[in-house]
Every structure is written in structure tokens, then in C-alpha cells.
Simulated assay, not measured.
Amino acid sequence: MIIIMTMFLLGILLGFIGAGGAGFVIALLTVAFGFPIHTALGTSLAAMAFTTLSGAYSHFREKNVDIKLGTIVGLSAFFSSFAGAKLAVYIQEDLLHYFTAAMLLLSAVCMLIKLFMSTESSENKLKTRQLWSRGIVIGVLTGLLAGMFGVGSAPFIQLGLLIFLQLSLRQSVGTTMLVILPISIGGGLGYVTEGFVDGALLLKVLIGTMAGAYVGAKFTNLAPKPVLKVAVIATPAVAGLLLLI
């Protein structure tokens, strides 16, 4: 019951900032509840498939999702995420802790630079060919990182959507939830085939995060933009620090 309640509170935050939350789930499962890192990776990534489905639907109803761009990036990420999960089993547990933590901290730094030191685009002026080429590259890279290190790469996806695909902050938040759906399915399948998904633990994580993500997505349009920016940056940073501890 403690795990479910913890995941519900986390789900509210993840739905609010448009993140699948695998990195934070991994940090909590390993640091607070003592699960092995590979089991935490596989279970959290598999759980994201359901968590993001709830959050993405809520963001879609709030008109925060670009369906076309989300589909391009998401389908590209599906295959690379599966491949990344297969590669993760060859990384030692101790190293995997540091790699995952480094990914989360780096993503927080990247979002800090983008959100506070530059202006966001108000209109997408890219040509169709540019949308496809940039979308595929973003999908392949973020999917590979997500599969290998068990994180949904939400900050990297948001950064790609903001800079290279020129979406607004709120559109990037909502579209990221859609992109993480195929990423988590592909990566989750990879970990399932390697035997690193705990069914009972997965159910507890799902109950909490799905309910929380749906509630949290309702607050994205209501929150002041500075609050949303701080939350987007602070979430991966805190998760990374927890893993280092």
C-alpha cells in the first residue's frame, strides 16, 4: 500500500510536467524500497506504457498534443528503445546506477539552458521534410537512451520538440507524453524478454501512477509558466541525485 500511495503522488507530478517518470520510479524503487536496479529499470519502463496512456489522453483532451509530430517521433523511438533494452543487460548494476543518474542530471541541465536562456517558438515554420527527418532522429536517439538506461528521456524529448520541432512549452509537454508511450512499450518488451519485469511490483506502480498522472495533467494549463518550467527541471534533477545517493 505504501508503494501505491507513493506512486500516486509521483504520478500527479509526472502528469503535470508531461513525463513518463521512469527515472524517478527507478530512483524510488532502488533507494527507498531496495529493489535491484535491472528489475527497477524493466518494471518502471513497462509501467510507463500505461502511465503515459492515461496522461497522454488527458493532455489530448486539454489540446496539448501535436498528433502528427508525436507519431513520427514515437514510432521511430519504439524500435530503438527495444534495442536499447537488449543492450542494458550487459551493463553492470553499479555502472547502470551512475549512467542513469548522469542521464537525469544532464537532462535537467539541458532543460535549464533551453527554458531560461532562450525564447520558445510561437509558430512552427518547418517544412514537411524537415519535420520527418528531425522527428526520426529525435525518436531514434531518445528511444535508445530510454531503453538502455531505463528512463523515458522525457526532458530530452521535450528539448527536441522545443528546439528542433519548434513546439510551444505546453505542446511539448503534452506531445512528450504521447511519444513516451511507444518508447515504454518497446523498451518494456525488451526487458520482459530478458526477465527483468516484476509482475506484482508492476501492478502496484501502475495503480498509483496511472491515477496520479490523469489528475496531474489537469493542472498543466492552470499553472503559471514559471512554475511549470521549474517543475520540468527539478524533477529529473532530484531523481538523479537520489540515484547517486
Rank of each mutant, 00 (worst) to 15 (best):
G55H: 05
H38K: 15
L10Q: 09
F35L: 15
G11H: 06
G42T: 08
Y90H: 13
F24L: 14
T52W: 00
G20H: 06
S80L: 07
N64R: 01
G55I: 03
S81D: 11
L95A: 04
P36H: 07
K68S: 11
A83T: 04
N64V: 01
F33D: 02
L10I: 15
L45I: 12
G34S: 10
I17Q: 08
G70H: 00
S58T: 09
L13W: 07
H97Y: 14
S44F: 07
K86L: 12
I91L: 13
F24T: 14
P36Q: 05
A85Y: 15
G15L: 13
D66K: 12
R61W: 00
Y98S: 13
S44K: 02
I67F: 09
G84D: 10
A46M: 15
A40W: 04
L14W: 15
I67T: 12
F33Q: 00
G34I: 02
E62K: 03
I26D: 12
G55W: 01
G18K: 11
F16V: 11
G23N: 05
V65P: 06
S58H: 00
F82L: 11
A22F: 13
V89I: 05
L96Y: 04
A22S: 15
A40M: 12
A32H: 01
A56N: 05
A27N: 12
A49N: 11
K63S: 14
K86E: 09
V31M: 05
L96A: 01
L53Y: 02
T43K: 08
M48L: 11
V25L: 13
A77F: 02
H59S: 07
A40D: 09
H38D: 09
L13S: 12
I12L: 14
A27C: 08
F33W: 06
S58D: 06
G34C: 04
I12M: 07
F78L: 15
G20W: 04
A88L: 03
L53F: 12
F35P: 13
A77E: 01
D66E: 15
Y57M: 10
S54C: 08
S81T: 13
T43L: 10
L53A: 14
F16N: 05
A83F: 09
L13H: 05
S76D: 08
M48Q: 12
E93Y: 00
T52C: 14
A46I: 03
A83R: 00
H97E: 04
K68P: 06
L29C: 06
F60A: 10
F79A: 14
G23V: 04
G18F: 02
N64D: 11
S58N: 04
A56C: 06
G84R: 11
K86M: 09
E93S: 10
L95H: 04
V89F: 00
S58W: 00
A47E: 06
